[in-house]
Each structure stands twice: as C-alpha cells, then as structure tokens.
Amino acid sequence: MTSGSIRTDAPRTHRGRTAGIRRIVAASLALVLALGAGLAQADPHPWQLNMTRGSTTWSGEAYFLNNVALGVCVVIGVLVFGAMFIAMFRFRKSRGAVAEKWSHNTTVEIIWTAIPVIILVVLAWMSTGGLVSFANTTGAQMTVKVTGYQWKWRYDYVDYLGKPVSKVDYMSKLDALSDKTRQLDSGMDPYAVKTGDENTYLLNVDKPLVLPIHTKIRFVITSDDVIHSWWVPEFGWKMDAIPGIVNTAWTNISKPGTYRGQCAELCGQDHGFMPIVVKAVSPEDFAKWLAAQQQANAPAAPAPAASAAAPATAQVAPAGSGEHG
C-alpha cells in the first residue's frame, strides 16, 4: 500500500497512542482487511483491491452489498472447492479408490437447491432496500443538469434551495496537461501529471463541478450526441446520459473533498478522456461561489451562444431538452 495520506478516515481514533509494533500489526491488518472489506478512501489508488465506501449518504449501500455478496461467495466457494479438493485427494485411482455406483440422492439435492434459495432471498431483500432509496429523488434542495458531449461534460445549475439559478453553466473537459501527455508518442510522463501530490493523469478537468455538502442534489442527466455515462465512484452510482431521454439521480455528499470519475459508456475515440471532477464544499462556500458565478455571468452583456438555451427554471422539460444548442 502507498502513503498514509490515503487512510485519512480509517481508524483514526485508535491511532494516537499505539506503539510501533501495534502500528505494524494494524498496517498488515489493514492490508488483509482491504482484501475483504476495503478501506474507506477517496479516488483510485495503487493496489486498491475493493470498492470505495464512498462519501455520500447513499454510497454505503453499494459498498455494503458488495462486501456481503463477496463474503457469501467466498464462503460458498470455500465449501464447494474444498469438497472438490477433498474428492480429488480421496477418490484417486492411484490411491486405490474404487468407483461407487450411486448417481442419485434426493435428500442432498433438495438441500443444495433450498439453501441457495434462502441465501438469494436475503440478498434480494437487502438489494431492494438500497434500490428503492436510490430511486427516490424527491425532496431535493438543488438541481443540476448534466449533459454529455463527445467528449466533454456540460453542467447547468438549475435551482438551489428553491430558487432558480440563471446563467451558471459551463463545459468541463480534460485538463490541458493530461491532454498533452496522453497523445500517442507525446514523450511525456503520465506520472508527472499531478495536482498537489496526487496523480491526476486523465482524472482532472479544466473546470470541476462545484457542489455543496449536506444537500440533497438532484441530477438530471442527458446527452447531446451519443450515450455517455456519468460516474463518480465516491457517489456510489453511475447513470447513462442518453440523447432524447432525461434520467434522474441524486446524491447527498457527506464531506468536503475532490471526487473524481470518468465517462463509463463507450462514446467514441476519446471515451477514455472525458473525466468528471466534483469539488464538494460547505453550503456557505457554495453559496458564495454560486453568487460569484452569477455575478460574473449575469450582468455582462449577452451570454455566450452555447448557454443561451440553458433552462432557466426548476422545471426541466422531460423530453428533447438534450437536443438544444
């Protein structure tokens, strides 16, 4: 595992007074845990083994289900493969095993049909809860419209705390340094593309989406050309951006930070080069940022042509809104 910076929200409370040995034990335990349960940390990091826990009120649902399902599979796998290996050891011709003649046993057949059914019912019940809560986009305090383009994203701030937001919209595309580095035979080193001490090669944009934390945010997601998919792993979901269709999703971010993702649906030659960056800030900072944006855009004479058709109210037309501009 790499540096300690990735473990910021792990077992911090127990850290302070641990001795060196305990720290080593903890570190190796962390490595073991990472296999099964994973550490809660943002953004992909080298040797990451498991899904992120995420940083929103909902993202834990996906993470929890992933861990439970993985655990169930590991247990069943150990039992089934264990039985196979015992059979391979015990019933070898070279050990003098003589083949038995039976080919049927109703009791065990009923048992090994029934037990999986019970396990599946439990898993289905757990998944349904998470799915239903994800589908509930009501009660949002804010709406952002996301539009996919080949190969960039456009963000329109539609409303915030019940008030329509006008003329805050912009394109967000791969940052210039990543874009130069990623050219075939650029001779540039992907390891040198950094923001602070974090490598952000192909995971950085010129202008991130700024969002407030502790706010239920509704996304309306569509596309202007082909199908894309808007995915920030820390939010726990992805949603396809489809021309002619407006999809909805929601999030409620728990802590400030920079969350990185990528387009997840093949959308042409630069599909791998349309990242998503969300900068989550406190509601106060967000209000300030939003005011500054409105001021910068609104009084200035006519808005740029591309943003002229941006929806001005909270009422997003369900169809065709992906086709403007």
Binding site: A62, L65, N66, A69, G130, L131, W237, K238, E265
Partner: peptide, 10 residues
C-alpha cells in the same frame, strides 16, 4: 445486485 451494479457496471 442492482445497487452494487451501479458501481460495477461498465
């Protein structure tokens, strides 16, 4: 499992 698939998908 749909909620987990939102992460796994693609």
């Amino acid at each position: 499992l749909v909620p987990a698939d939102f992460q796994y998908h693609d």
